[in-house]
């Protein structure tokens, strides 16, 4: 069953059509790749799913519900968590505090309970549970050693991982990863590929992955959607997509342009 379904989604910025009549289905439990050359509209799709951008046309259904009727801050409660292409960690909070914020929608006490703090057993318990879960996820992603560090002092690859952890800790049903391998070397990327697969099985999530590293995409994705200039140009298994002439042309075209510039 499709957990996420976009149909006819169009996003315009003034004259630019960033996403053009996009139809896409993400099956529950899959690792689904969303690829395409720079400026194809991939991040814009993520921002539609986060409810930052209002599509001019089209519908988005998540888990049988009309996603477009929710506020940006309600999306994570439905079960969609995300990372950002340009890391958006909270600089004033340590790594584990960032993961505490990642669980914000699960921590259910209000302002007055917060004011009384540890005096209330239910606040103590909620905080303890959140801390334990944060540690579990940090350990799973192999970054527990950085728990007390402030994110801006960490290497870019580690920051990317912290963002991944912050999204995962919210117990999402669908996790959106925008270029998680950026800033990582080949062996770190290989490790990340394994982690994403293990995560999918262990936490029973669906993954929508935007990534320029083709070896990563081809090795772990079960389905791939290819975009170019806002349009979907191909859809299928990695083998099908790689053999698709339109895809080859889109990527070759990019290389030709780069070759001309060189």
């Amino acid at each position: 069953m499709a957990i996420l379904e976009l149909s006819g989604v169009t996003v315009r910025f003034g004259g630019i059509v960033a996403v053009n009549q996009l139809d896409m289905k993400v099956e529950e439990g899959t690792i689904h790749g969303l690829i395409g050359p720079n400026g194809a509209g991939k991040s814009t799709v993520f921002n539609v799913l986060s409810r930052y951008y209002e599509p001019a046309e089209g519908t988005v259904t998540f888990d049988g519900r009309n996603l477009l009727q929710y506020q940006p801050s309600q999306v994570v409660g439905l079960g969609i968590a995300r990372t950002f292409q340009n890391v958006e960690l909270f600089r004033g909070l340590t790594v584990w505090e960032n993961l505490m914020v990642g669980q914000h929608h699960n921590i259910r006490y209000g302002m007055f309970a917060a004011a009384l703090g540890g005096l209330l057993p239910r606040v103590r318990q909620a905080e303890q549970e959140a801390r334990d879960r944060a540690m579990e996820v940090l350990e799973f992603l192999g970054i527990a050693a950085h728990r007390d560090a402030y994110p801006q002092f960490l290497p870019y690859g580690i920051q990317k991982r912290v963002e991944f952890a912050r999204a995962l800790v919210s117990r999402p049903r669908l996790i959106l990863l925008d270029e998680p391998a950026a800033g990582m070397n080949p062996s770190e990327t290989e490790e990340l590929a394994q982690l994403i697969k293990i995560m999918r099985d262990k936490y029973e999530t669906t993954v929508l992955l935007v990534e320029h590293d083709m070896s990563l995409v081809m090795s772990i994705c079960e389905r791939i959607t290819v975009m170019d200039f806002g349009r979907k140009i191909a859809d299928g298994t990695p083998a099908e997509v790689q053999a698709n002439p339109a895809v080859i042309k889109a990527y070759l075209g990019e290389e030709e342009v780069e070759a001309e510039h060189a």
Binding site: S50, Y52, P72, S73, Q74, V75, V76, G77, A81, R82, F84, E88, L89, F90, R91, G92, L93, E97, M100, V101, G102, H104, H105, I107, Y109, M111, A113, A114, A115, L116, G117, G118, L119, V123, A126, E127, R166, S170
Partner: peptide
């Protein structure tokens, strides 16, 4: 107490990144 709670963390989160804070349900 407030600063050490989910409320205090939410304040810092929205100060540092409004987009990310919203994506965390704030």
């Amino acid at each position: 107490n407030i600063q050490r709670s989910a409320v205090g963390r939410a304040f810092i989160a929205l100060r540092d990144s409004e987009v990310a804070a919203q994506a965390m349900g704030i």
